[in-house]
Simulated assay, not measured.
Amino acid sequence: MPVSTTAMIVVCLAMALAAGLSALATRSARRRDTAASPWWGALAVGLAYTLGHAGVAIPSIPPSDVTDHILGIALAGAAVAAFLVGERGGLRVRVAGYLGLAALACIVMLGPVLGAGDLPRETIGWLTATAIVSLLAVLNVALLDAPAWRSELWVTLTVFAAGAGVVLVLANSVILFLLGGVLAVVLATSLLASGGQPTGGGVPVAAAVLTALVVEGYVYAFLPTAAALLLAASPATLWLIRLRPLHRLGPKSRATVAAGLVLVPVAIAIGLILASKSFDNYGS
């Protein structure tokens, strides 16, 4: 699936939108002498991803493909990010917001299967397990999303989005690879434009969109179960940098280590898929 010039231009516009809103939000926060960006700044990543997604995979209205629904999931993530600005409500509200996004992603992405009529018990059990793993993965991100560690989490999710895209293209889904790439470049652009301060509301959006991408790859493409579980568990590697030896590192060093750690399960997932393909070719 070649990427058209128009799609590349739209993605560049999405990066510019993320950069512009994030930079303005950071400047506004500094003027007000506060760490919290304005609510509209938290919309940066969600709006930019939506624009980039539309450029890469033009959606139909009403949505006719499961991939089209990811746009709505991203916008829901942006709304949650805007609501949570300034740590409104604390940990409980943040967890509730993130779990709501995960539930939305599961319902929307699994909708075509759930609406297929009477399902055998094996399929129901498989779908239930998929939803539970998705909820646990997003819960982990919500718990990791503490203000003091948000920059490291942001970098981790940026690298993870790019790595997940590679895994998904190996699972025979070029479009999911492209969408993972769009999310990665938007997250990176927002963070750079804000001077390393995570003001663009990217964590809820990334959690929601990545959940949708992995669920779609697992249910509708050819993402193996082991690889899907590794992707779901990848952000949990960030807990390691909170241990005392790594905790003493500076923010940039911790972010670098976090990026390296998240690539370990991603690399294993890539290896599993490549090994499976090699085995299939050998068997044929």
Rank of each mutant, 00 (worst) to 15 (best):
V185P: 14
L153Y: 08
V185A: 02
P120E: 13
L119I: 08
I132W: 09
L183W: 05
F177Q: 06
V167H: 05
F177K: 00
D118H: 09
A164R: 05
R150L: 13
L144R: 10
G117A: 14
A184S: 15
V186W: 02
A148H: 10
L192G: 00
V182S: 10
L157F: 04
T158Y: 06
A131Q: 08
D118M: 08
L168Q: 11
V185T: 14
A161N: 07
I124F: 07
G115H: 10
S190A: 15
T158K: 02
T130S: 15
L178S: 00
V182N: 09
A162Q: 06
V174D: 14
G163C: 06
T123Q: 14
V166Y: 05
P120K: 11
G180E: 03
L119K: 06
A142F: 09
V185W: 02
V133H: 04
A188I: 01
L157R: 05
A142C: 14
L183G: 01
R121K: 04
V141A: 00
A129D: 10
V138P: 08
T189L: 07
V174T: 12
T156W: 09
S151H: 06
L157K: 07
R150C: 06
N172P: 00
A129C: 10
D145T: 01
L168C: 10
V186L: 00
F177D: 00
W154A: 10
V186G: 04
V169D: 06
F160N: 04
W126F: 15
L153N: 04
A188N: 05
L192A: 14
A164E: 13
V182Q: 11
G117P: 08
A184D: 15
D118S: 13
G125S: 03
V159F: 11
L170M: 03
G181H: 11
L144C: 07
L135F: 10
I175N: 01
V185R: 03
L187K: 10
E152N: 02
I175C: 03
L179Q: 13
L178W: 08
A131F: 13
L168M: 14
P147T: 01
L168Y: 05
L119P: 00
L144T: 04
L183V: 01
S173I: 06
L170A: 04
L191R: 05
A142V: 01
W126T: 11
T123W: 11
G163M: 02
V155S: 02
R150H: 04
T189Q: 05
A161T: 01
L179D: 09
W154P: 06
A193M: 04
W149M: 05
V174H: 08
F160K: 02
V166F: 10
G163L: 00
A164I: 13
V138C: 08
L170K: 00
I132Y: 09
T128W: 14
L139A: 07
G125I: 01
V182D: 12
V182I: 05
L187E: 03
A116D: 13
A137K: 12
D118P: 12
P147E: 04
G180I: 02
T189K: 04
A184M: 03
T128K: 11
A131H: 06
T123H: 07
A188R: 09
P147F: 03
D145G: 14
L192K: 12
